[in-house]
Design a protein around this nucleic acid. Structure first.
Length: 422
RNA sequence: GUGGCUGUAGUUCAGUGGCAGAACGCCUGACUGUGACUCAGGAUGUCGUGGGUUCAAAUCCCACCAGCCACCCCA
């Protein structure tokens, strides 16, 4: 065994697993483009300050979960813990406001958070995110939620639900926090330890406490304390979602863990997952662009957790396409055949046929075994007999049926035979 | 950061103080130049790491590391 181990909370992704990744990522890209999003790739390292300012100095992400380090010049950098701040930075830095509004972006890539790993939670994890800049129109929020719904349906996921909420503007939220504190105050002595701590640190969190459920159930709802603007926005959002025919639940207990959210907040929860059941989450962040030094620009976005989606696909026993399956394995015996097979491999690959040319010295039996191992659809066999007759044998690895074909017709026959699979 | 369970071959695990094992997988070969069946042979381990107890430790004790799960938090 190697002395080197993968570091805690990280993963090697290969083999059959990679098919799930292709499935999730390819479908996402394809659909995001259909919705008019364009990809943006931002660096994985950013200045630490971008996140402490953007995500919020008081959040757990910034307080204890960031990978930060000094570079050789003493600059404080961080591995990105989330995608939005980077995209906002790029939007401002490249003056993208001049490209017309609204602007729609998506990204796919790894994020890093120093947390204790558990089911559905890694230190390096992948997100697919989307952001819309430059519109405060609730239709934008609705379209994002519609995307999530359509996307998960396209993946063939069924056992999930979409929850929406409005957490209002910063102002109205402060008002609500006061009301909540008043409500919780008399219960304080009987609340769990965590709730007592959170009472001052993050009062909104008391709402989704797993212990003091009863107290939370009767707590005043944030929806009753929204200012008119937020209320209207939320009403329109619901109206649009109905038009999109997206099923949703209103859950006033959804609070997001990042400071930048305002008005709309939403989560998609998968019912077969463990405690880390949120497969996507997002919301509106109308103040963030300005807060990071850009022009006042309203925005909405979401992030999807790829690992969690894959977990959900497995729980629902959804089969994914085998992207890496070999179409044709080329087995040969003898020097003459080898030379001919090298040429043949080039030919087949030109026709986009996934071709695996035998690369080792072993007998035919071993080569067939290897082909079987690779799950090849067809195997082309060329031995001394074939060389003499200028033919090759094409073997269907599922049925064992074999056909001899003139060397010059191989590609055509292979293309024909491959149609029987799929 | 806190807690519970678990670390032995590539994988799943047995071994509970006295020579490191099984099944599957892998490699080689046999059976008509032909895999998924059968048969024969072979390779693979610092028993998670470090310390301690003991004549003797995979086995007992301690610490650390890692995995899984839960809290916390989030995708």
């Amino acid at each position: 065994m190697s002395n080197y181990k993968r570091i805690k909370g990280t993963k090697d992704i290969f083999g059959e697993e990679i098919d799930y990744w292709y499935y999730v990522e390819n479908k996402a890209k394809e659909m995001l483009e259909k919705y008019g999003f364009r990809e943006i790739r931002t660096p994985i390292i950013e200045s630490e300050e971008l996140f402490s300012r953007g995500v919020g100095q008081e959040t757990d992400i910034v307080q204890k979960e960031m990978y930060t380090f000094e570079d050789k010049k003493g600059r404080i950098l961080a591995l990105r813990p989330e995608g939005t701040a980077s995209v906002v930075r790029a939007y401002i830095e490249n003056s993208m406001i001049n490209f017309g509004s609204p602007q729609k972006f998506f990204y796919i890539g790894p994020m890093f958070r120093y947390e204790k790993p558990q089911s559905g939670r890694y230190r390096e994890f992948y997100q697919i995110g989307a952001e819309i800049f430059g519109t405060d129109y609730p239709l934008a929020d609705a379209e994002l939620i519609d995307f999530l719904y359509e996307y998960f349906k396209t993946l063939k996921l069924t056992n999930f639900k979409i929850k929406i909420n409005s957490i209002g503007t910063t102002k109205s939220r402060e008002k609500y926090k006061k009301v909540l504190k008043e409500y919780y105050n008399p219960f304080l002595p009987i609340l769990c330890e965590d709730c007592q701590r959170r009472y001052n640190a993050n009062i909104l969190r008391l709402l989704d406490c797993k212990i003091d459920k009863d107290v939370a159930a009767n707590a005043p709802s944030i929806l009753d304390y929204l200012d008119n603007e937020s209320k209207e926005h939320f009403e329109s959002l619901k109206k649009y979602l109905d038009v999109f025919e997206v099923p949703y639940e209103i859950d006033p207990k959804i609070v997001r863990g990042l400071d930048y959210y305002s008005k709309t907040a939403f989560e998609v929860e998968h019912l077969d997952l463990g405690e880390q059941a949120v497969i996507a989450g997002g919301g509106r962040y109308d103040d963030l662009v300005e807060q990071l030094g850009g022009p006042k620009t309203p925005a909405v976005g979401f992030a999807i957790g790829i690992e969690r989606i894959i977990e959900a696909l497995k729980k629902e026993h959804i089969e994914v396409e085998n992207f890496s399956q070999i179409d044709v394995y080329i087995a040969y015996q003898g020097e003459q055949a080898e030379l001919e097979c090298i040429k043949l491999s080039k030919e087949l690959r030109k026709y986009k046929i996934k071709t695996y040319l035998n690369l080792s010295k072993r007998n035919l039996s071993g080569q067939l075994k290897h082909a079987n191992r690779l799950n090849a659809k067809l195997t082309i066999i060329m031995g001394e007999e074939e060389v003499v007759d200028d033919v090759v044998t094409v073997r269907n690895m599922e049925t064992g049926e074999q056909t001899k074909v003139q060397r010059s017709w191989v590609t055509e026959l292979v293309l024909e035979k491959l149609k029987e699979f799929s």
